[in-house]
Structures are given as structure tokens and as C-alpha cells.
């Protein structure tokens, strides 16, 4: 039973399917990240490391 299940994985189609899923996920993520509505938030997020420096003007 277990080895039967494992043997399924030797099928290269599974791998290609995984590749395809990854590609779709990736393209989706890219489109989503570049949505217009995210702009303000991302600007705020980008400033997180330097916020305190901006506040008290110190290097």
C-alpha cells in the first residue's frame, strides 16, 4: 500500500503538474503584488527600517 502510493511519485507528470502550479501561483502573486490599491501601504511598509531615523533625524 505504502509502496504503491510512493510509486505514483515516479510519474514525471506529477512533477510537471507541480511546475505548472508553481508558475501559476507565481504569476498570480506578481499580478496581485502590483495591484494599484496596494501602493500606499507598501510605501509605508518600505519605510519601516528607517522610521525611527526619520523621526528623530539621526543617522
Amino acid at each position: 500500500m505504502k509502496s504503491e502510493a510512493l510509486s505514483q511519485f515516479t510519474d514525471i507528470h506529477y512533477t510537471i503538474t507541480a511546475l505548472f502550479i508553481f508558475l501559476v501561483l507565481f504569476v498570480g502573486l506578481t499580478l496581485w503584488a502590483y495591484r494599484k490599491s496596494g501602493k500606499a501601504l507598501y510605501e509605508k511598509m518600505g519605510e519601516m527600517p528607517i522610521l525611527e531615523d526619520l523621526k528623530d533625524g539621526r543617522q
Binding site: Y34, E43, E47, P49, I50, Q59
Partner: peptide, 11 residues
Amino acid sequence: KAVQRPVYSYR
């Protein structure tokens, strides 16, 4: 931090 600029593109 070093250049006092936010990262070029957060996206």
C-alpha cells in the same frame, strides 16, 4: 538603514 532611503520597491 545605511543610505537612509526605503528599499527601491517593496513589491
